[in-house]
């Protein structure tokens, strides 16, 4: 059973990498926020799985609970902050902050 949980944890980590693509590439700030939220939910579950593997679940489940609440509050705060944001693509900030080139209409 432990092997199964380790496998599940590894798959969750790989899925987090997939969601990280959306967080890094964007193209808008809101897309990045969405990716971060998805990673946060996966982290909550990963914490419970890690606790089960190490046999210390009564400790990890508290951390997971706190993480879930923190993730929710961060999402709400960030989405309030970026409401009515003018530069929604984050143009000019960082390596990945460049605006996608639009292909010309045929």
């Amino acid at each position: 059973m432990n092997g199964f949980f380790i496998g599940a944890g590894v798959i969750l980590c790989l899925l987090m990498l997939l969601a990280l693509y959306r967080t890094v590439v964007g193209p808008t700030i809101i897309d990045r926020m969405m990716g971060a939220t998805v990673i946060g939910t996966k982290t909550t579950i990963l914490l419970v799985i890690i606790g089960t593997i190490y046999g210390r679940v009564e400790m990890f489940v508290d951390i997971a609970l706190a993480y879930a609440m923190l993730n929710f509050i961060v999402t709400i705060a960030a989405s309030r902050y970026f409401t009515h944001h003018k530069n929604i693509t984050g143009a000019g900030f960082g390596v990945f902050g460049r605006v996608p080139k639009r292909r010309p209409k045929k």
Binding site: I76, T83, I88
Partner: peptide, 14 residues
């Protein structure tokens, strides 16, 4: 959270 994020996008005129 879904509602908050999508509303932020709607207000920012994505």
């Amino acid at each position: 959270a879904t509602h908050a994020i999508i509303d932020a996008g709607y207000q920012s005129e994505v």
